[in-house]
Design a protein around this nucleic acid. Structure first.
Length: 422
RNA sequence: GUGGACGUAGCUCAGUCGGUAGAGCUCUGGAUUGUGGUUCCAGUGGUCGAGGGUUCAAUCCCCUUCGUCCACCCCA
């Protein structure tokens, strides 16, 4: 019986890993350009942290967490999302004591779900959390920021911004009773999940995909019509900023998000090209979370980008011109020449930092070595054989130009490389 | 967790109405004792996902299981 990867875990082979790397390398400078600082957070947290902050009745906490008892008997959980840990850390380390913070992090999250395209049990997120700013300016900023990221990745036309406001705790509470009242009258027509949610988490019924439930919801009261004055003012303010910055969006009054901690502004960036897993980025405000952890009341907003999904989009949309890994390939014939080729490579790596140099290891016909040189994308192949060793020279063979190959001494080679690669 | 489709060479896939399999790409060798990208020729490579059942005989039929994909669900 062969051992294979655990269900829901994916191996990123060099080709796809390169896409992830490209996505990260594109996003990182954008975050930096907005003045956000990177923070490193643990993959494991106390189970209670998620129970408390994400919400006991959320699906994530109820049935999707990787929870274990460690050797000392403590209940620990592989983080299913990043915000809780970030809030914990910011709080514990005093980062948000009387100050504003703009933080970001990248890493793996874990949820025990049925794997699907764009959904894995270990998945990668880039998360952003901002503390100490009540909005709506900061809300607009992170939306500008995300829009900028899609721009840089060439995904702007693939992606739509959907916006909603959940209001504050009391206006949402008032709305909730109204919604329950409305839905209870038609309970028989609801799907099974929604019936259950009527008791546990009525707002989640809003984003049900069940056709019957959707039909009933058409007539249902809308959250966005029940906002408190402050939430309404902030939401209008956010909309104005988006419009003036010409960031297109649509209002989707049914966005409620599956984590309990959100309030006021919530949003999702969605795509039509990823099937059922269309949310590529999601977030919103969570003004009560810090307090819930025992801190002072601290307004906060954040979002997470699903790297795996973005990578899928990039793979589908970008014409990734296959750039090879190497600049220079060194072929050798015979064991003496092989030793020399290793030493030459070391010397060149020392003198040409940043140049990617591959050396052929082992025996092998020159023919196949050159074939490999060609596939590596190298501009130039160097050949070292008995003749070259005897003359203290090296054969330089341009692979992408019509120039003929030439023999030259090692110092001449360095002068030549300097000319070619500068 | 529920429903459906699918698992054949490293990859993409064909095929066998039940008699143990084939193509393209890759890789290796040759045409070219030390010269790639185009050709041409040849070769390596498969317990036909795993386990069990029916049968003289199973890659094919049946059951179970694992995995993948799609939808539900969930959300990034």
């Amino acid at each position: 019986m062969k051992i294979q990867a655990v269900r829901g875990m994916q191996d990123l082979l060099p080709e796809s890993k390169a896409i992830y790397r490209y996505v990260e390398d594109t996003i990182r400078p954008v975050l930096k350009s907005y003045g956000y600082s990177e923070i490193g957070l643990p993959v494991i947290e106390s189970t209670v942290l998620f129970e408390r902050l994400v919400g006991e009745s959320t699906d994530i906490v109820e049935k999707e967490m990787y929870t274990f008892t460690d050797r000392s008997g403590d209940s620990i959980t592989l983080r299913p999302e990043g915000t809780a840990g970030c809030v914990r850390s910011a709080q514990q380390n005093g980062l948000i004591y009387n100050q504003m913070q703009r933080l970001w992090y990248a890493g793996s999250m874990f949820r025990y779900e049925r794997p699907q395209k764009g959904r894995f049990r270990q998945f990668e997120q880039i998360g952003v959390e901002c503390f100490g700013m009540p909005g709506p300016d900061i809300d607009a900023e992170i939306l500008f920021l995300t829009a900028r990221i899609w721009q840089e990745l060439g995904l702007t036309s693939e992606v739509t911004l959907e916006l909603n406001s959940l209001g504050n705790v009391s206006s949402r509470g008032a709305y909730k009773t109204e919604l329950i009242e409305y839905l209870s009258a038609r309970e028989d027509e609801l799907d099974e999940d929604s019936k259950k949610r009527l008791q546990t988490n009525p707002l989640r019924i809003l984003d049900s995909k069940d056709a019957g439930t959707q039909a009933i919801l058409k007539e249902a009261p809308l959250l966005i019509d029940h906002l408190d004055d402050e939430s309404k003012r902030d939401f209008d303010g956010l909309r104005e900023l988006l419009e003036r910055a010409q960031v297109p969006y649509v209002i989707n009054p049914l966005i409620v998000r599956g984590l309990d901690y959100y309030n006021k502004t919530v949003f999702e960036w969605t795509t039509a090209s990823l099937g059922a897993q269309g949310t590529v980025c999601g977030g919103g405000r969570y003004d009560t979370l810090v307090e819930e952890l025992g801190g002072r009341p601290t307004p906060a907003v954040g979002f997470a980008i699903g790297l795996d999904r973005v990578a899928l989009l990039v793979a589908e949309n970008s014409v990734t011109d296959k750039v090879g890994d190497l600049d220079l390939f060194i072929a050798s014939l015979g064991s003496e020449a092989r030793t020399e080729s290793m030493l030459l490579a070391e010397q060149l790596r020392r003198n040409f930092v940043g140049l990617n140099i591959g050396v052929h290891c082992g025996d092998g016909k020159l023919k196949s070595q050159l074939k490999r040189a060609d596939n590596s994308g190298a501009l130039i192949a160097l050949i070292l054989g008995e003749d070259e060793i005897a003359a203290a020279e090296v054969t330089v063979k341009p692979l992408r130009a019509e120039d003929p190959q030439r023999r030259m001494s090692w110092p001449a080679l360095e002068r030549y490389l300097k000319k070619v690669f500068d």
